[in-house]
Design a protein around this nucleic acid. Sequence first.
DNA 1: CCTACCGATCGGTAGG
DNA 2: CCTACCGATCGGTAGG
Lengths: 230, 230
Amino acid sequence: MSSENIPLLEKENLDLPQKRGRGRPPKDESSKDEGNRRLELINCAARLFRVNGFAATSTRDIASAAHMHSGSPFYHFESKQALLFEVMQSGMHSAMARQNQALNTLSGHPCQSNAKEQLRCLIRHHFEVLLGTGNDFIPVMLYEFRSLDTHQQAVISQLQRQYEAPWIPVLNELYQHQLLSCPVKMARLLIFGALNWSVQWYSAQQAASLDELTDSAILLFLHPHTPSSK
Amino acid sequence: MSSENIPLLEKENLDLPQKRGRGRPPKDESSKDEGNRRLELINCAARLFRVNGFAATSTRDIASAAHMHSGSPFYHFESKQALLFEVMQSGMHSAMARQNQALNTLSGHPCQSNAKEQLRCLIRHHFEVLLGTGNDFIPVMLYEFRSLDTHQQAVISQLQRQYEAPWIPVLNELYQHQLLSCPVKMARLLIFGALNWSVQWYSAQQAASLDELTDSAILLFLHPHTPSSK
DNA sequence: CCTACCGATCGGTAGG
DNA sequence: CCTACCGATCGGTAGG
């Protein structure tokens, strides 16, 4: 006879090292592969959420794109919504880090004369975040905010404020020197709108480059410095 | 005397509030009533699509909002997608009619000097279309375009081009007079983005009025006319 | 426009 | 991470 008579409770003693119970993996060692699988899930989810929207994307679609079976995403994430939240959070942290890097390439002295260059740098980087190849995370964040619950929305809003924080002194500077005529708070909302909307119409094949987009935006928003006002 | 002899086909006696005229409408007004019910469906669908998105809104949600039972929307529309398409089409036709009315209130002579006033008029009306109370149709069109099939997208794109047509000569005029520094094609895309994005942040309670929004947008986009450039 | 219903699909889970 | 599965819900329909 066989192991059929072994009581169920004793089967737990058969656990091998690689087996663990259900649920997400512990954060510690040995999870390099699992971290890769988790990252692959996030990347696939970001793309599908961007293309089809959150509600129209099934967890089966995501699993299939990541070469998993239908139930497996729930080994890494407790729910579809938690996966969306993770996409947005990691996208924002990455975008903020790259924005700070971009700003650091400019001169270390934030003097008045280069506020225009700082704005150009911020706009150029934001177009990269929105339109760069493989950058699906921020568009998802922008267009699926309502799919989060209240607490998640509060977290993402806080990250958005952090991301926008470097823009405010730059816009203030430009406003004080009359390169910007619109009050700063409203200018920030309208400028971000103009940039964020580009994900709706930009096509890398036929349209302008991101540098050309940036030039156009600067021309639209900033007034030429009239010599008499020097 | 009560409901004793009424044969109940329903296996459940639902306690829904009974509306008048559950049976057939009077013959000579049947088309009018059906038109009203159809319009109510469109209005309810527009609001729900705007608040929750197309994919996250069920046809049962729409039926309930219109005080119908679950299968009844399909008496008026062949599919959920056809209802979305109708929302967008009727919204665009209404918006175009009102845009033309707004333009007609301006002076009948489209001379160069009032191009700025024409742009202000177009922007002010567009904010009304986006943010006015009960105007859910255009936001739905802007944010659910991908939920249409290819043919429907082509129809809506054509309507969008018609809606934007009056903007182009105005922007050309402003560009030629250096009130606008950004090339017109790009300016149009960026300006519509700035305006369209307002549905993401505008709150009628706490924010500026639509007139103030319009003033800010004009300040942001149009350069002051330097006397020397005449 | 309602009643009653269907097949498909969904998010998620138990157990290994 | 897979296998097998569940209850809920979905868009849509037949017939009146």
